[in-house]
Design a protein around this nucleic acid. Sequence first.
DNA 1: TTGAAAGCGATACCAG
DNA 2: CTGGTATCGCTTTCAA
Lengths: 369, 369
Amino acid sequence: MTGDEKEGTSMAVTLAEVAAHAGVSPATVSRVLNGGYPVAGGTRTRVERAVEELGYVANAPARALAAATSDLVGVLVHDVADSYFGILAGALQGALGPETPARSGSGRLAVVCNTQGTPAAELAYLTLLEGQRAGGVVLTGGAVEEVEHTVALTTRVARLASAGTPVVLCGRPPLTVPDGLPVATVVFDDHGGAFRLAEHLLALGHRRIAYVAGPAGLSTSRERLAGHRAALERFDPAVAEECDTLTVHAGFERSAGYDATRALLRRGESFTAVVAANDTVATGIVAALREQGIRIPEDVSVAGFDDLPFCVDTAPPLTTVRVPLREAGILAAQLVTGRRQPPPDGITTLATELMVRGSTAPPAAGRQP
Amino acid sequence: MTGDEKEGTSMAVTLAEVAAHAGVSPATVSRVLNGGYPVAGGTRTRVERAVEELGYVANAPARALAAATSDLVGVLVHDVADSYFGILAGALQGALGPETPARSGSGRLAVVCNTQGTPAAELAYLTLLEGQRAGGVVLTGGAVEEVEHTVALTTRVARLASAGTPVVLCGRPPLTVPDGLPVATVVFDDHGGAFRLAEHLLALGHRRIAYVAGPAGLSTSRERLAGHRAALERFDPAVAEECDTLTVHAGFERSAGYDATRALLRRGESFTAVVAANDTVATGIVAALREQGIRIPEDVSVAGFDDLPFCVDTAPPLTTVRVPLREAGILAAQLVTGRRQPPPDGITTLATELMVRGSTAPPAAGRQP
DNA sequence: TTGAAAGCGATACCAG
DNA sequence: CTGGTATCGCTTTCAA
């Protein structure tokens, strides 16, 4: 331990002090610290010792001011407390750190912003990040599909990008920005996942499938619902039509699933399977069904979307469309830091996976009531 | 819409430009922007219009450099993907924003750092945040109780605090720092929660209670286990002793619960209840039990610690010690931003709540095998 | 109430 | 390879 930092009302050590201590110029210290510059071995050593002895920690704001870019990466999520975003943000944050965990002092920091999926918050945070001269921004989660917002968002994103800030859209549709701007997109095959999930349920004999979708107006809700309906339509237009009555738009919280299910039941609808917007919603659905004495999955089979493997083998839902959130987070981190180049069209599509745990056919009594 | 921002390879608008556009000095613009300074009404209006017209966004790094403090708040968590930390971080982040959601451009940003609970990462991130001249730092989650690390951590925290950065320890033991330093602590009544949980199980007749604890050496694991054991001890020293054999230290992931349970069963232990380090672990426990054909909660009752209410009424565990994470997050945000003063001793203790969903007595066959 | 000017701490260009 | 030094954009005395 060489630690010799002095306590007190201490004002931080500056690069100049390190330079003086090492008997070199500030410029040289900067070079040693930033690497990638020819510096004599002896000089380098002296500087490093000085840094060590003084406990020098570079002033990031100053560096950002001079370099016109910080090592902050903004991550916009609807809500980190939601496992979907928690997993995504966690993977992203982890992949942002130094490749070599060795030398600390490096590494980019993740600025997590909860937008609740609202346009206003989204724009506000983008402004804040623009002010921080963020080194990158990742927008995650379904986008509100509303022209006014899309235009405003496109403007802000283009502005960030043209100022040199790489932007990555993750789990939301691409934005139309001028060519050459560093805007990449990572999307999940939500449509395909929902399609295969519906196919699976149909194959098991389910015909009346309830669907507790995410909020209307959200890109992900639309994509998934479209995939779901496409599968039903392809199977039998009549079934598709019938199922439209069984579709409810709700939120992403547990209560959304609970309330939606109660509403469906109160309305007197009968169904042998329910698809949930995500597994959190699924837990609410399960609770509501249990409360009514409906057995799961004997009476009703529950399925969901997410990346919560435990729901697959612990309790219903027994079928889950797994969205590769970790992979996406890592990919987004690489794209936003330039460690990886986006494909020519800027769009990377990640496949979703249908995870099935046992076949739960609908009860005989449930068929076509 | 007055928006008239020009696109291109644009270099951002500066305060000086706004000043020129408004026909005032930079100093005046700064005053208008930062408020709390006497500025003539007319002048203020002109400046505000100039800001609007030019689409000016202040350069945060420059501001931080000049002001010697940024509006970034570091939040260290073990893993945001873990609901415990996700909920905590989410609430914290939300409470950090402007009180009046009106004017954007304000608001402090949360820098979320995953430490995996490792000392090295913890120290590394603190250094990074020190470099950012963070406006505050919140350390969450159990602390590794190891003198060497505690000393290193105390040093870094004291250093941050003495440099004017408020530090809040949340869900971990207080640190001994020199008086007058802005270091506050928010703790959960882990001991009490575990105590009451054990009492509850004992009251139901359970005598052989397995305990899948968190990692050994972690403050939270110790506190909870201590509370648990204290209750058993108080009830009957013999029972306490017996239960020690049924205690396993594991991680906080689902697999930890799964593996631990399999190990217990393989070892031939019999028990009528299991307490999990958290609800995620509980799901793993449940999975392992189910796999062995053990019925829950008829054969074995599962209980956990967390703030995942859905586990309480959807599936086992049927009993949960609810840790007030949201409240803690908000409180930490207020303390770190100075919107709230810590009590004289700097320590705030938040009560935990025992949430019970039905009484699950141990099966007659299970009593004292 | 407003303006002028001196930093804040690091980067990077230009010499040497 | 190393040393000056002019920025970077904003805050903050100090005067006026």
